[in-house]
Amino acid sequence: MFRNFRLVRKWKFLQLISMCCVLSTLLVCWEEVDHHVISHVRSYSYRYLINRYDFINKSFAVSREEADSFGRFPYLINPQEICAHKDVLLLLFVKSSPENFRRRQIIRSTWGNQTYIKQELGVNVKVVYVMGVHPNPHQRAAVQKKLNDEDQIHSDLLQQNFMDTFHNLTIKLLLQFRWAHASCAHARFLMSSDDDVFVHMPNLVQSLQALSKQDVENLWIGHVHRGAPPVRLKSSKYYVSFQMYQYSSYPDYTAGAGYVVSREVAAKIYHATMTLNASLHIDDVFMGICAVTVGVSPQEHVYFAGEAKAPYHPCIYEKMITSHGHEDDVRYLWKAATTPEAKGISSGFFGNLYCKAVKMFLLCKPFFSNTYSCRAAFS
């Protein structure tokens, strides 16, 4: 009996030591735990309030003059005639940095080739590269000369005189929607993407043509982030202070790497930008704030990637719309994704079964991957 009592005491002592170790670890790592676990739970339960009520509208509301001042920069390059054709299915903005000459040229020769799109797909898609000025004053003049030469050849650059930096991405968003309203308001759809995004243009055009036959007044599709919490870690480039954004959750929004809105939503977002404080530097979140104020909600499209690449496989290519994180492999991917073999690979009973199995293996893995969701395997 005495021996059993000693065993119980020893077991309780080990429990106490284990608990102390766990608590010590939590205290040391609390900021990380709070950011990755607690803040996500809190923010997701808070998102209903953010998306349903208008206190964001009130806290970000400013006068029209102040709202206009956030994007009031002189144009350095302005392709005003690019949308002269009245029948424009899609106005596609590519957010680019001034020095990314090679990326733009690769896009022009692959998925953004407007001649190919017109001749092979039979529609007008206008691709415009959006940017500010080079942030390094010592390189700015040389880069600007090359940009002027580039625009003389292609006439597809859109540039204002602001520093092209991460913290000015919201200015880029203002530039896109305000220029579209002034110079290409008749485009049926508007898309925004990054210059390291691959767009499967045949699939995108086919999807938009199908949507054109439906009621798409409030269309906003992409990879949706729901209940995302503001990052409060000062070491992160996504850090947002309580003074800049006081709530525990962002409104629902689509990843800025690639999303599509209808002409009607583009007009609503433009009007929202003329009433809101645009000092929040995370552009896709600001887009969500604009959308909340005008009563528009994002819709998940399983073939729009988030911040990661889509898997390389013909069964994926058959329905893919966007994939993020591409630079050196764009030409390879364009060739592989648009071959006849990739189209219709899932046709027939066995083809469908094969592709479903492949997509389940590639997309339904038991770890988080910010690309296509497992639901894409069953679509």
Rank of each mutant, 00 (worst) to 15 (best):
R263N: 14
A266P: 01
P314S: 05
E300C: 05
F286Q: 10
H301M: 13
L280F: 10
F242C: 09
E300A: 13
Y317D: 03
H281C: 02
L276I: 11
A291R: 01
D283W: 03
I282W: 01
V265N: 00
A267W: 03
Y238K: 15
D283C: 02
Q243H: 09
L276E: 01
Y238C: 07
D284M: 07
I316C: 00
P311W: 09
Q246K: 14
H281Q: 11
Y312E: 09
Y259K: 10
C315I: 04
Y270E: 06
Y238L: 14
H313Y: 08
Y253G: 05
S249R: 07
C290V: 02
S248Q: 14
P298I: 04
V294N: 04
P311H: 08
S249L: 12
A310C: 11
H271V: 08
S235H: 14
S235C: 11
A310Q: 02
S262N: 04
S297V: 07
L276G: 02
G295C: 12
A257N: 14
K309N: 08
T275A: 14
K309I: 03
P311V: 01
S279C: 10
P314A: 08
A267K: 13
F304Q: 04
V260P: 00
V231P: 01
V265P: 00
R232V: 05
V231L: 06
A310N: 04
S235I: 12
V285C: 05
A291S: 12
N277V: 04
S249Y: 11
S249D: 06
V231S: 11
S235K: 15
A310V: 05
T273E: 05
Y253A: 04
E264A: 12
S241A: 13
Y317M: 10
Y247C: 07
V296L: 10
M274P: 00
D283Y: 04
V260R: 06
G288E: 10
T254F: 05
A308I: 02
P298K: 05
H313D: 15
Q299W: 03
M274T: 13
Y238M: 10
Y270A: 01
S236H: 15
S297D: 07
L280A: 04
A291M: 14
T275I: 00
M320S: 05
S248E: 09
I321T: 06
H281G: 04
G258C: 10
Y270G: 02
Y239L: 10
Y317K: 04
Y238G: 07
Y253M: 11
S236F: 10
G258Y: 02
M320T: 01
Y239M: 10
H281E: 04
Y270T: 08
Y245D: 01
M287A: 05
R263K: 15
S262Y: 02
H313V: 09
L280D: 05
H281T: 08
Q299R: 14
T275L: 15
F304H: 13
E318C: 08
G295K: 13
A272T: 04
G306S: 10
A267L: 13
A257Y: 08
Q246E: 12
M320N: 08
G306K: 03
Q299N: 12
S241F: 11
G256Y: 07
I282D: 00
Q246M: 12
G256P: 03
A291D: 03
A308G: 06
M320I: 07
V285R: 02
A308K: 15
I321P: 00
A257H: 03
